[in-house]
């Protein structure tokens, strides 16, 4: 068990190191900071002077360690496009993305899990079949088109909700939140639905499949044979065993929500990290790109790590050596 936790931590560290290495290569070879500082028509002598001043003429390993040290202290350089420190720009954008992702995630969990359970228990009913059909539609609609449809319906046709931006925000000890104003909430509705539709459908289908799998197991049959009521069998035995894999799914969903946020933010001009990232990619703003890469990798690695360790904690069967790897295959 301890060996597993250690190997998992080592793996997480390895991923981070690879990603920071990639960011370093990007930062060093793609964006020439010297040209960024001096302009394209600077003389070669001036460039060499700046180069040695910035330490860019040192051996590569030294530069990498230097870069690693700066990344760990949160220094990602200056954005080419905006001319401001990257860490400051990123920090401004975090609240918008976090609020959007959490709202989408909450919708996915609150609707997806109950719907999945319901369609598994009433699998032959017309309602369940219809829901399943709708869910196929849900995973087939590209999320950006979902956003376009929602804007068309609720912003253009019925003029009920805003089609872009976050509305009014309130500054709460440095965290700008949209959750304390009416316009903030109204602005959140459409992007949150956009991000959640795919996740609700996915969650529902996965929970349903998992629940059907569990309902086929012997211990369910024995529980029925003992004369337990349907309610007790479903809630105490089936649901509990279904929820174990759901934890993993939910964790991975959170990652995917953050991935999808890039698209949703672009559709609704939501001023978060994803929109910043897209704008930086389009403008080849390398410092912001590499910083986003490292930041998002840290988020994903943490999520994956927590999910794996949670899994270990919930399901005692996996604590034997190699249990988790075996269970995943």
């Amino acid at each position: 068990m301890i060996a597993y936790v250690l190997s998992r931590l080592w793996q997480a560290a390895l991923v981070m190191l690879v990603v920071i290495g990639l960011a370093f290569v990007l930062f060093t070879y793609l964006g020439d900071p010297v040209v960024g500082i001096l302009g394209a028509d600077s003389s070669e002598a001036a460039r060499a002077a700046i180069r040695s001043e910035l330490g860019l003429d040192r051996p590569m390993p030294v530069q990498f360690l230097d870069y690693l040290g700066r990344v760990l202290s949160g220094d990602f350089g200056v954005s080419y496009r905006l001319g401001r420190p990257v860490d400051v720009i990123l920090a401004e954008r975090v609240p918008a993305t976090v609020e959007l992702a959490l709202a989408g995630m909450a919708l996915a969990l609150l609707l997806g899990i109950p719907l999945g359970i319901l369609t598994a228990l009433r699998r032959r009913s017309a309602g369940a079949q219809a829901l399943l059909g709708v869910s196929l539609l849900g995973i087939s609609v590209p999320s950006f088109f979902m956003g376009v449809l929602l804007i068309w319906l609720f912003s253009v046709t019925f003029d009920l909700l805003p089609s872009f931006g976050r509305g009014e925000t309130v500054d709460l000890w440095g965290w700008s939140t949209g959750l304390l104003t009416l316009s903030g909430w109204r602005s959140l509705i459409l992007p949150a639905i956009t991000i959640a539709v795919f996740q609700i459908a996915m969650m529902m289908r996965l929970v349903r499949a998992e629940m059907l799998e569990v309902l086929r197991k012997d211990f369910i049959r024995f529980a029925r044979a003992r004369g337990l009521s349907d309610r007790a069998v479903h809630l105490r035995h089936a649901l509990r065993n279904t929820l174990v894999p759901v934890v993993t799914i939910a964790g991975l969903q959170l990652g995917s929500v953050i991935g999808f946020a890039v698209i949703t933010e672009s559709v609704f001009q939501w001023p978060g990290l994803g929109l910043l990232f897209l704008q930086s990619v389009a403008a080849a703003d390398v410092p912001v790109m590499s910083a986003y890469l490292v930041l998002i990798a840290a988020v994903f690695v943490t999520i994956n790590l927590v999910v794996d360790l949670l899994y270990l904690w919930i399901d005692p069967r996996l604590r034997a050596d190699g249990g988790l790897e075996a269970a995943r295959r």
């Binding site: 991923v15 793609l30 890039v262 990619v281 998002i296 994903f300």
Partner: peptide, 14 residues
């Protein structure tokens, strides 16, 4: 570790 959309965007950015 990363969703496909981010891998593709990062690749395009590079």
């Amino acid at each position: 570790t990363f969703p496909a959309i981010l891998v593709a965007v990062i690749f395009d950015g590079i």
